[in-house]
């Protein structure tokens, strides 16, 4: 990461146009000699934070790709840990950004953009986010990241199975796979939720120093 990132100076990253800063406002501290010749995106600290979280999620996706799976589609979904943490700390909108950035950037990284696999991942992510939008309103006293994670995991397979059935394999035979996917969702959902809860607990206690609580304060 370059030094300019930390200070929150603008970068030349093309892509998402942030809506948070007014247009045409040049940063006098720009590191480019002739800023007008560049396409500058004014990014906020929140943009950088979303990008950083999405990058962490991408790293976990990459890591997960190295784990052999007994059945295509049965994956731990480690990147969802990041989504859960972002949801708990920064809210649903930020979680949507991080999750969808991960899906799109991940598909570009793995070279499956617009392939069936991409649409499976996208539908799973969208269903999960929809369910999380509801699940986040559960009383915090009794429901934590573990519940969120399990609901999201079930929503994920529901979304994927819907796409598989409606588009890829319109065959009742895929119903035979549902128990396997549901079991995996329950197990991995629980494990991911526990990891997320544990991580947030550690971060709040200052064990994980980088990122974490100080950033949370900054965003709020």
């Amino acid at each position: 990461m370059q030094e300019s990132d930390r200070k929150g100076l603008p970068r030349t990253t093309e892509g998402l146009r942030p809506k948070l800063l007014p247009e045409g406002k040049q940063n006098p501290e720009s590191r480019f000699p002739n800023p007008e010749s560049r396409i500058l995106l004014h990014t906020t600290a929140e943009d950088h934070h979303v990008a950083r979280m999405a990058a962490v999620a991408l790293g976990l996706t990459l890591l997960e790709g190295a784990i052999p799976s007994p059945l295509p589609g049965v994956k731990p979904g480690l990147a969802n840990i990041v989504t859960l943490i972002v949801l708990a700390r920064y809210g649903w909108r930020t979680a949507v950004w991080v999750s969808l950035l991960r899906v799109f950037a991940g598909s570009l990284l793995f070279g499956n953009f617009l392939t069936p696999g991409f649409f499976l991942g996208l539908s799973g992510a969208l269903f999960s986010l929809l369910v999380l939008a509801l699940a986040q309103h559960l009383p915090k006293r009794w429901f934590g990241p573990v519940s969120h994670s399990i609901y999201a995991a079930f929503a994920h397979i529901a979304g994927q199975m819907a796409v598989v059935y409606l588009w890829l394999i319109p065959h009742a035979g895929i119903a035979y796979l549902i128990p396997i996917f549901a079991t995996a969702a329950l197990v991995f959902g629980t494990v991911n939720g526990l990891i997320a809860a544990r991580f947030m607990d550690n971060a709040n206690n200052g064990i994980s120093s980088r990122g974490g609580a100080e950033n949370a304060e900054k965003i709020k």
């Binding site: 006293r141 009794w142 934590g144 609901y151 526990l194 809860a197």
Partner: peptide
């Protein structure tokens, strides 16, 4: 201890 009462219900 990260599993709250509602989480057990969900599980």
């Amino acid at each position: 201890r990260y599993i709250k009462a509602g989480d057990w219900l969900t599980l």
